[in-house]
Amino acid sequence: MHETSHIVQVTSVRDETATVHTLEFDDSTMAAALPGQFAMVWVPGIGEIPMSVMVADGGRAAFTVRRHGEATTGLYNLGPGEMMGVRGPYGNSFDIRAGRLLLVGGGTGLVPLMRLISRAPPDADITLVMGARTRPEVFFADTARALLRPRPHCIVVCTDDGSYGRPGLATDAAADELSGGAFDAVYACGPEIMMYKVMRLAQDAGVFAQASVERIMKCGTGICGSCCMGRELVCGDGTVFEAGRLLANPDFGVRYRTKSGEVAYY
């Protein structure tokens, strides 16, 4: 899957929050991406960043981006008809189990979980815990409702400041869910400290768990090493890892590499 990048056109842009856009585009390659796989997305003249592939209707795919740095702001600012380059999809994907599934996501980390929902077995019973800092930062609630409607499900929205839904951290809600019922699998994506706690909770509960990890990526294909996490390359060995492997990794939840390769701590 290392063919050269190709240019796609943004077909529509949706406001998720004041700083988050979902950009849809027609592309059969990305529409076929598995939950957890990512694309390297090129905003010509501005930058290139890894983006998890978001669900969209029909043969379309989407990226959901929060404007933050130069490249994400460039992507956020793209309008309908404008061009971006995509290559991939790269990386592995979630091992989607049957039965009762607990999904825990925060912010744009919800993207691969939305895709996971769309690919889960029809009779899987899904509990989705969505975390945000404040009410205006909650997004994908409607998207999740629409995706989950045909199946047994439960949605728990949490805000850190208590301005909407359940007050407190997503990890607290996840802990309650895990202590309240028998789950067959747990999947997490979001801030690394959150994922670390969720993996720890799942392991303590003896439940199969995976998380999709984020690191700085330049090549996406196992060449540059920017995304190293201990002995793992997040792009090629992940982005999805099982809890046991993550919790045994000295970097997971602790430290990451900056653009220069210097070590920084969470």
């Binding site: 050269t4 390297m40 090129w42 501005i46 930058g47 290139e48 290559r87 210097e262």
Partner: peptide, 26 residues
């Protein structure tokens, strides 16, 4: 820090082009 992306791009046919900008921690 090196250059902004794209810095490493596959060209097909087993070829790659890169200009990473010598990013390194010193």
């Amino acid at each position: 820090d090196g250059y902004p992306g794209p810095t490493v791009v596959p060209l097909g046919g087993g070829g790659w082009i890169n200009a990473v900008g010598l990013s390194n921690p010193g």
